[in-house]
């Protein structure tokens, strides 16, 4: 996880695969943050979740928001963008971590009344996400296919 209020900074997280990147940004105070989590639920390994909360959606996402609030961001101004959660082809429940990663985020957002402004989820592609702290622009680089603004 990274949070910043330095306008010269661009936060980047690479190669998401079935992981999910979440970028949040408050345009008024120009505070932004990003998390790249790997798995949906910390119940898998509570000890590990204590050491590395950002590995899991349910333990990592709340810390991301709180860290931005500490820098002056306000929840009602936060612009939220999400990418990743790719899947293998014709995957069964054995391989659907991407889907469950996204479901965990939706559940958390629904409970806490958070809206998603932009998202690029699922499919078979590999994504890299960056967040420009000066402008709040979120860019996705898709391996072998080019760049898009989310």
């Amino acid at each position: 996880m990274k949070v910043s209020n330095d306008p010269d900074e661009v936060l980047v997280t690479y190669s998401l695969g079935s992981c999910i990147a979440l970028a949040v940004y408050d345009p008024v105070v120009k505070v932004g943050g990003m998390i790249h989590y790997m798995l949906p639920d910390s119940n898998l390994d509570k000890q590990k979740a204590k050491e590395r909360p950002f590995m899991f959606a349910n333990t990592g996402i709340p810390v991301l928001f709180k860290s931005c609030f500490k820098l002056g961001a306000k929840k009602n101004r936060m612009i939220v963008r999400v990418a990743g959660g790719s899947q293998l082809m014709d995957q069964s429940e054995f391989f659907n971590i991407g889907k469950r990663n996204y479901a965990a985020l939706r559940k958390l957002f629904w409970r806490n009344n958070v809206m998603i402004k932009g998202e690029d989820i699922g499919g078979n592609v590999n994504r890299t996400m960056s967040l420009n702290i000066k402008t709040g622009t979120v860019t996705l680089k898709i391996s072998g296919r080019g760049e898009v603004v989310l």
Partner: peptide
């Protein structure tokens, strides 16, 4: 699935 060493192939495997 972890997105490691993945290029234009993405996750396009069965």
């Amino acid at each position: 699935m972890l997105g490691i060493g993945v290029g234009s192939d993405g996750l396009s495997y069965r």
